[in-house]
Design a protein around this nucleic acid. Structure first.
Lengths: 345, 345
DNA sequence: CCGCTTCGTCGAACCGCTTCGACGATCATT
DNA sequence: AATGATCGTCGAAGCGGTTCGACGAAGCGG
């Protein structure tokens, strides 16, 4: 493995000169530059990442901190990750996937931050009140959130615009003529834990429905097919005349569909279904394919990384705060409600 | 940020002594060790990852090289990634997610390898003939494959035991009484590109079926719901009396289910469906839930990382070659065939 | 023609840690 | 008691880069 010294010797210049042609930190004459580049090519020289990182105090490594307590990544989260990885690689950074336990191990987090391995980090799955954000902030690590805390003062984040997403989803259904719409949210525990998307969509749903003069009915559901089935049962019990279901629980929604079928209710003739914050791939899995609010997916990861890198490279202290709406993609699971007789069950 | 010198000064020992208590490379007396540890605690010292990496020539960073041409990660691949990330973190390594273009950019790969940022790499999505494997090998980077090439001489890999998986799946269906079984594979292009899983399952399917004295019918399908629909249409055309479908195309299978329903064929009463190399989460999405050959998922990633780390830490040159079967999990999509009249369509 | 920048390059001092050789002290060996 | 080993510690030389101050040469205004 050739080093800079080898290149310098072959090109008959000093090491610092080699460094300068590499980094461009100082002007180098055309002739010298050519000599150096030729030597580098001849030796097949590649700068050593560790040495460069040590000397420049920039590792060019970014951390993607994601809690990995549950069943791995959903399709939406996977899209964040791949988007981030692609973006990092595109701007010449490396992306470390760092699974951090759900909570508790703040020390672990501080240790990570103090190792100076990451120039900056992206934190996923942020809670409304998240001590990890503070811990990272105190450690002085440049930080971008995917999601956001309750108080976003001085923080950079990219998040889904849940308010608008819910508003549009509801508007779509109301526009079709639906009046009794049930929202199937994440589980009660998830809500209690302060999970932002669950809470924000809940509030947005209430706002949107009451804005239309309708009564908002929300049902929490476990993140599983069984949870979805149970939720639909509960929904029908609470609102026997429901004609539409809005669901943001990616895993529960297939249970909802199954239960609808089991009850002899067809989609979309009897009940319309809208899936929120969903990837197209998942929406296409259902039959009929789901009308969905398509999540920005990989764009979120990309934007987060780009904001982080801009913050690192640029000297600026400006915060990046951005909300991305999900796009309504109408497929086969929504239609105008057919006026059916409530059978009183 | 405290350095080793600060610790050494406070503890009144030399820096090398501090290093030795940290690495254990040489014996240190109990008293000295205590002094040093106290100083470290007092200063909240964390070793600098870059400096350590440079000096020791071990970055403690592993690369996970995954081609990212298509639509991000499927559930199964995502499981590999998360399994790998968790395993790496558990043994004190960092995992860099490195998207490398499908092919072509071997230079990019060599550059990555020469930067000495990775102590070793895991390569995913390996083709039967894969130049990336050679490129990495020549670069002298310790390597473990997820998947395997045609010739695995001197290579370490973890892969799914497709032969056994297909054999068990077929045995399950044959055991239920099915005779006309169609295998829906990946697309023709994927097959032509030398994608191992597609080719291996194809061969295994032929072997298994002929072993039972049955005729193997294989249909390639695009990786999409539409592809699945088309494949089922083709399958029915080729084998009008089919009573069972085996599918390994995770995205196509939902199209298959949809098309079956559209044709008034119920699952599992009219047609049994087995999904191969599938995650439980995906299998549960369908109604009825899919009988599936459950992929080892995160275990694959974990084992690959563990093998790599063992290779790095241990001095041994031993290769790790391991095949993991998928486990048959019987859910609601398979049953004995009902003797129905072929309607000649 | 002189003093002053600007340009291009060099040498050397780090960056923070590992590791090797050396060395005094302790301890078993003959 | 002399002789090695062994133990515990130190100092210094890297690891492979970056970056700063310096310095000769060239360019410029007056």
């Amino acid at each position: 493995m050739a080093t800079m010294h080898d290149v310098a010797r072959l090109a008959q210049v000093s090491v610092s000169t080699v460094s300068y042609v590499l980094t461009g930190a100082r002007p180098i004459s055309q002739a010298t530059r050519a000599k150096v580049l030729a030597a580098m090519a001849q030796l097949d020289y590649q700068p050593n990442a560790m040495a460069r990182g040590l000397a420049s105090r920039r590792s060019r490594i970014l951390g993607l901190l994601l809690p990995m307590d549950e069943r791995g990544l959903g399709a939406t989260e996977a899209a964040f990750v791949t988007g981030a990885a692609a973006a990092a690689s595109a701007v010449g950074y490396h992306l470390v996937l760092s699974p951090v336990g759900g909570g508790g191990d703040l020390d672990e987090l501080r240790r990570l931050a103090s190792q100076r391995m990451f120039d900056g980090v992206v934190l996923m799955e942020v809670q409304l009140a998240d001590e990890r954000v503070d811990a990272l902030g105190q450690a002085g690590v440049p930080l971008v959130l995917i999601g956001r805390t309750g108080d976003t003062d001085g923080l950079s984040y990219v998040d889904i615009d849940f308010e608008q997403t819910v508003r549009e989803a509801v508007a779509h259904l109301v526009g079709l003529g639906h009046r009794q719409i049930v929202y199937v949210n994440h589980s009660a525990e998830t809500l209690a834990s302060g999970y932002g998307p669950a809470l924000r969509t809940r509030d947005a749903f209430v706002t949107a429905m009451t804005g239309h003069g309708l009564e908002p009915v929300m049902i929490p559901a476990q993140d599983s097919a069984a949870g979805g089935r149970a939720a639909l049962a509960a929904a029908v019990a609470r609102a026997p005349g429901l004609t539409a279901v809005l669901a943001m629980n990616e895993t529960a929604i297939f249970g909802i569909l199954g239960e609808l079928t089991a009850r002899g209710l067809s989609v979309p003739d009897d009940v319309s279904v809208v899936s929120m914050v969903t990837s197209p791939q998942v929406a296409e899995l259902a039959t009929p394919a789901l009308t969905a609010m398509t999540s920005p997916g990989s764009a979120m990861g990309r934007i987060a990384i780009e904001a982080l890198v801009r913050h690192l490279d640029g000297a600026g202290d400006e915060r990046h705060q951005q909300l991305l709406p999900c796009a309504l993609e109408i497929r086969g699971s929504t239609a105008a409600p057919r006026s059916r007789q409530p059978d009183g069950g």
